[in-house]
């Protein structure tokens, strides 16, 4: 960013808009934070004032405290901050996730946060916003990452559950606590209309509650801890965060079969390293074809890449697409690789 008065600049606190006097997803405390979504690497604790999209309010207050100074905004509604006009547009990543559109003196920039193009019954679909400058995530920006349709993957998960149930085994599906777990519950509800209760590790309960309160239809759930002592959950489906894998919490289940639901499961070595029986490739991030498509459709001439394979994506856009693209160092982690 070499402009004399750039719309966005990188400071030690994070991305900053000098004209508007605010940061986007800052990782150190600032006076005004515009937050794209509730994942911990984007929505951090300690800012004086927060702005975010309305559907994510419940998530942010659960994560950061009920009493944070948070202004929620409907998708698309313009907000004047200093000399900048800001608006939030669905990113399709998790409930309440937003791309932040920033307009200063006729120049438009969009910061995506995390996003995906694929349909997801648990959140509003991605909205394409034309812009001059585009700050995109690059968590899975390598051509090896291309997602099968969610429908196909959910079908594989159901088949796996059915096979385990036939053998009286517990199916434990590991997934991230915010986003993936609720997407799975929404998919199970939407695709199968199942009324079968899905059991939850305690760490997943607060965010599932937040989605329900926001009116997202989910399959019925009950915490594992609510079951009587001695219940082995034979034939049942249990959702748990990756941190529960291999802990004593798993002891009570009947011959548990484990699987991890993540974009990383696309690569065999990743799955074998973590020791899961199965890996299901379902991600809340854009894959390679979609990140290229999105960059092209925004019409942006300048692209900044964050997360994961930022260097790879920037080089590809520069050398193969002739765009003014660069990677920027951020503290964003995307779908954390150490789950």
């Amino acid at each position: 960013m070499t402009d004399p008065t750039p719309v966005l600049t990188l400071t030690p606190q994070g991305l900053y808009c000098p004209a508007g006097g605010f940061h986007v997803d800052p990782w150190r405390p600032v006076p005004t934070a515009v937050v794209t979504h509730g994942h911990a690497d984007h929505a951090r604790w300690g800012h004086a004032r927060y702005h975010a999209a309305a559907p994510g309010e419940g998530i942010l207050r659960r994560r950061l405290g009920a009493d944070i100074d948070l202004a929620s905004h409907a998708y698309g509604a313009p907000l004047a901050l200093g000399d900048a006009t800001v608006s939030f547009h669905p990113a399709g990543h998790v409930l309440g996730s937003a791309q932040v559109r920033i307009e200063v003196a006729g120049e438009v920039w969009v910061v995506t946060g995390d996003y995906k193009r694929e349909a997801d019954p648990s959140c509003a679909p991605f909205e394409l916003v034309r812009c001059d400058g585009f700050v995109t995530e690059a968590t899975f920006a390598l051509p090896i990452y291309r997602w099968d349709p969610g429908e196909k993957v959910v079908g594989e998960i159901l088949a796996w559950w059915a096979e385990n149930a036939r053998r009286q085994r517990t199916s434990i599906l590991f997934c991230y606590a915010l986003g993936k777990a609720q997407r799975l519950l929404a998919e199970l509800h939407a695709r199968t209309g199942t009324e079968r209760t899905v059991h939850l590790h305690g760490a997943l309960v607060p965010m599932v509650d937040a989605y329900r309160e926001a009116g997202v239809p989910l399959a019925p759930t009950a915490p594992v801890s609510a079951a009587p002592k001695g219940e082995t959950f034979a034939g049942e489906l249990v959702l748990a965060p990756p941190s529960a894998m291999g802990t004593t919490w798993m002891r009570r289940f009947a011959e548990p079969q484990t699987a991890f639901v993540s974009g990383w499961m696309r690569v065999r070595g990743q799955r074998r390293r973590r020791g899961y029986d199965r890996g299901f490739v379902l991600s809340d991030h854009v894959d390679w074809p979609d990140v290229l498509r999105t960059v092209a459709e925004t019409g942006a001439r300048r692209v900044l890449c964050t997360h994961g394979y930022a260097d790879t994506l920037a080089r590809f856009l520069r050398e193969e697409r002739g765009l003014d693209a660069a990677a920027i160092e951020t503290a964003f982690e995307g779908e954390a690789d150490d789950g």
């Binding site: 390598l142 051509p143 090896i144 990452y145 291309r146 690569v267 065999r268 070595g269």
Partner: peptide, 24 residues
Amino acid sequence: WLVDDSYAAVGDTAETVALLVDAT
């Protein structure tokens, strides 16, 4: 260079090739 980067992320030629063909 992008094939090399992909190979580094996968660590297996047979799999890298299968995934790259898939994306195409």
